[in-house]
């Protein structure tokens, strides 16, 4: 009976398929094939990184390719928050929000010290309308500033101990980005409180932000908006004037400054402000979006490389 089955099978196409599969399994060096595949998929990371750093568009196929790359990478390094975070980034821009959120949560569960991902999670919630939760995460983010700085300092020490000063620039880049996020957190947090109608909190946050970063024109602009909406026109006008000093092409700041002047009865200054707005428009100047309003989240590769350098030669 078994021989009859074998004979029957040999005469069928299934047998040929089996031979082909076995031949390929025997001949293909899966390690080399996998390396080839990884090298091919890795190309997408260049495009994704360029997009994260400000390139205007990205081919969705590149984001999908990057996801495939990270998925393959996770087979070798399963507990890496950075990889999950980067996958979240790709899913976010593919507008696959549930998967993006899942990846961010996985990343943070694995590595709570990934500060940029906390920021991204808050931004994610903010963009999806969950402003209260976003504000909560941003508050938490601000309260962890010292821990973050200590973390960066520890990383630097580790690199110095291992005599890897040549890659210190990666930590410096992370620190720079962290500092930028800190400023923007004050802006977004006050914006969140403003939309939650918690005006006192909004003003308190903006004021603390201004104490730390007195020259930041965005914080002046936001504080000006808060003052304007609560009727403090004189202080609002001074903040808008600071914003204009920071960027003489800021159409929005001119506009609100003009409105404040109207409220304060200075019609000459009001006319000058509005004239400036029309001049700037005629020159094609567009109102600047708020920082991060284009929702450019973080794409982390520095920490990944740092780990590689720290673990090498162990």
């Amino acid at each position: 009976m078994p021989w009859r089955i074998v004979n029957w099978l040999i005469g069928r196409c299934l047998f040929l398929y089996l031979v082909i599969v076995l031949l390929l399994l025997g001949l293909v060096n899966r390690h080399v094939a996998h390396n080839n595949r990884m090298n091919f998929l890795k190309q997408s990371e260049v495009d994704v990184k360029a997009f994260a750093l400000g390139a205007p568009t990205i081919d969705p196929a590149m984001l999908r390719m990057a996801i495939r790359y990270y998925r393959e990478l996770l087979r070798f390094i399963p507990a890496d928050g950075v990889i999950h975070g980067n996958m979240g980034f790709c899913y976010f821009y593919l507008k696959d929000y549930p998967r993006a959120w899942g990846e961010y949560q996985r990343a943070l569960a694995l590595e709570p010290q990934l500060w940029t991902l906390h920021w991204d999670s808050a931004m994610f919630l903010f963009q999806n309308g969950d402003v209260k939760e976003a504000a909560w995460i941003w508050e938490d983010y601000l309260s962890n500033q010292d821990a973050a700085r200590k973390y960066f300092a520890a990383l630097k020490d580790q690199l110095r101990v291992k005599k890897k000063e040549d890659v210190l620039y990666l930590v410096q880049r992370m620190e720079k980005r962290f500092a930028k996020d800190e400023t923007e957190t004050y802006i977004k947090l006050s914006e969140s409180y403003f939309s939650l109608k918690q005006y006192d909190n909004a003003q308190a946050i903006a004021a603390s932000g201004l104490k730390l970063f007195p020259g930041n024109r965005w914080l002046h602009y936001v504080t000006g908006l808060l003052d304007f909406s609560t009727g403090h026109l004189a202080t609002a006008a001074s903040h808008f004037a600071e914003a204009i000093a920071g960027n003489p092409s800021d159409i929005n700041a001119y506009y609100y400054h003009g409105l404040c002047m109207h409220g304060l009865g200075d019609s000459r200054q009001q006319a000058l402000d509005f004239l400036q707005v029309s001049k700037l428009r005629a020159h094609g100047v567009q109102p600047l979006p708020m920082p991060k309003d284009s929702a450019r989240l973080h794409f982390n590769t520095e920490l990944f490389f740092l780990r590689y350098h720290l673990n090498r030669g162990k």
């Binding site: 005469g11 069928r12 196409c13 299934l14 047998f15 040929l16 398929y17």
Partner: peptide, 11 residues
């Protein structure tokens, strides 16, 4: 077609 009779052309 996996269970089709194999022929020289298919091989």
């Amino acid at each position: 077609g996996a269970l089709n009779q194999i022929n020289r052309r298919i091989v």
